[in-house]
C-alpha cells in the first residue's frame, strides 16, 4: 500500500529521517514507536506531503505523494490541532469533512452513531466551538473525523496522548476493528509501548530517523521493545 524509497529529510545539516526502504502492506495496523525527535511525525508529514523530503519519495497506492494529489481521496489523517477548524462546532466540522469526502449528512450521522461510546457525550450537541473543548475532546473529534468517508489509509499521530484511560481503551477497540478490515491500513505512532503492541500487528522502531527494529507482533514483542528502550 505504502512504499518508502530512499527517503531522507535534513534540516540545516541535521538528518532527521533516513529510511532506505520500507513497505507497508495493505490491511492491518502499522505502529511507529520511538523517543522524541526520532522522526515519527516527520515521516507522517512526508507521507501526507506536508514537508518536502530532501531526497527520495513515498508512494501511496502506487501514487507518488509529492507529484499527484489522487492519494488524498483515499487517505485521511489526524496529526495535531492544525487538523481541526477551531471556530466550528464538532458537528459542523464533521459535516464539513464529510462534504469534502463526498458524504452527505446522513452518511456522517450514521458513522458518528457508532462512536457514541467513544465520544462519551462530550462531543456532539455541545454548542461549543472546537477551540473551546478540552485537549482530549479535541483529539476525539479529530480522530473520528479522520474516519469519515471510507479512507483506505488512516494516519494517527500519537492518538493515545491526552486521552483518559477509558477513552484509550475504547480507541484501542476502534483501531483493532478498523485493522480487521482487509481494505483499511492504519498507521499509528505512539510513545506508549503497551498500547502499540496491543493494537498493531507490525511495529517499527525509529531512532534518530532510522529504522532500528521492524517486528511482527508476538508474545515477546512488548518485552523486546522494553529491553530496547531500556538500553
Amino acid at each position: 500500500m505504502i512504499t518508502i524509497h530512499n527517503l531522507t529529510k535534513r534540516y540545516t545539516g541535521n538528518t532527521v529521517l533516513n529510511i532506505d526502504h520500507l513497505e507497508i502492506h495493505k490491511g492491518g495496523s502499522f505502529g511507529l514507536v520511538g523517543n522524541n525527535g526520532a522522526g515519527k511525525t516527520t515521516l507522517f508529514s512526508a507521507l501526507l506531503d506536508l514537508i518536502q523530503p530532501t531526497s527520495g519519495y513515498i508512494e501511496n497506492k502506487g501514487i507518488k505523494v509529492n507529484e499527484n494529489e489522487e492519494w488524498k481521496s483515499i487517505t485521511s489523517a489526524f496529526i495535531d490541532e492544525t487538523f481541526l477548524i477551531g471556530y466550528l462546532t464538532a458537528e459542523e466540522y464533521f459535516y464539513f469533512i464529510g462534504e469534502l469526502r463526498g458524504q452527505n449528512k446522513a452518511d456522517v450521522d450514521a458513522l458518528l452513531s457508532q462512536f457514541e461510546d467513544f465520544f462519551h457525550g462530550e462531543i456532539l450537541g455541545q454548542k461549543k466551538y472546537l477551540r473551546d473543548l478540552s485537549k482530549g475532546n479535541q483529539k476525539k473529534a479529530g480522530i473520528v473525523a479522520a474516519l469519515i468517508g471510507n479512507p483506505e489509509v488512516i494516519v494517527l499521530d500519537e492518538p493515545f496522548a491526552n486521552l483518559d484511560p477509558t477513552t484509550q481503551i475504547r480507541l484501542k477497540k476502534i483501531i483493532k476493528e478498523l485493522s480487521a478490515d482487509p481494505e483499511i491500513t492504519v498507521l499509528v505512532s505512539s510513545h506508549d509501548l503497551m498500547h502499540v503492541t496491543e493494537v498493531c500487528d507490525r511495529i517499527v522502531v525509529l531512532d534518530k530517523g532510522e529504522v532500528v527494529k521492524d517486528i511482527a507482533r508476538s508474545e515477546e514483542t512488548l518485552k523486546e521493545l522494553e529491553e530496547h528502550f531500556n538500553k
Binding site: 501526507l48 494529489e69 488524498k72 489523517a77 495535531d80 492544525t82 487538523f83 477548524i85 477551531g86
Partner: peptide, 13 residues
C-alpha cells in the same frame, strides 16, 4: 493558517 495542514491533506482541489 491555523488549520492549513488539514486543508493541504484533505480531499480538496
Amino acid at each position: 493558517s491555523s488549520y492549513y495542514p488539514l486543508m493541504m491533506s484533505q480531499n480538496i482541489r
